[in-house]
Amino acid sequence: MSLTHETIKETLVAQFGDKILSWEESYGMACITVQADHNLKVLTFMNDDPTMGFQFLTDLTGVHYPDRKGEEISVVYHLHNLKENVRLRMKIYVPVEKPDVYTATGLFSGANWMERETYDFYGVNFVGHPDLRRILNVDEMDYFPLRKEFPLEDQTRIDKDDEMFGR
């Protein structure tokens, strides 16, 4: 294991400076927060740079924090350097009014559906995505169901007593 968390941090800070907003380690995985409009630059750098080599996109998902004003929607990337076997988590935050994020489909073909899913759940607008449509839900759906303000339960049920089920 030659690629340590310190190396990653130093390389990234040297390259991007204050665009790397925060750095933390939790449960053995390094996690960086990047300025939202720099996500693609950082991803490309980590993909191309020979010392970094994060060329495998493990996961891409969204999180909704309704209480954080101005950065309600978070997009989380899990990257993996398969050669050195190092994992890295990268986060960006965007406001819910204008959730524009650059797409990673140019780098990872696998990001295509993951971004569509994130759009479907949270309404993140991936700029430059080739085919940004709903993927899991019906096209007619007019809200983004995983945002915290929307209810889980099926609203068409009539056999449940609302008082008993707390809705």
Partner: peptide, 12 residues
């Protein structure tokens, strides 16, 4: 009956 999936996306 929809089972354990009383959710927005499942037919009950």
């Amino acid at each position: 009956s929809g089972g354990i999936f009383d959710t927005y996306s499942v037919l009950q």
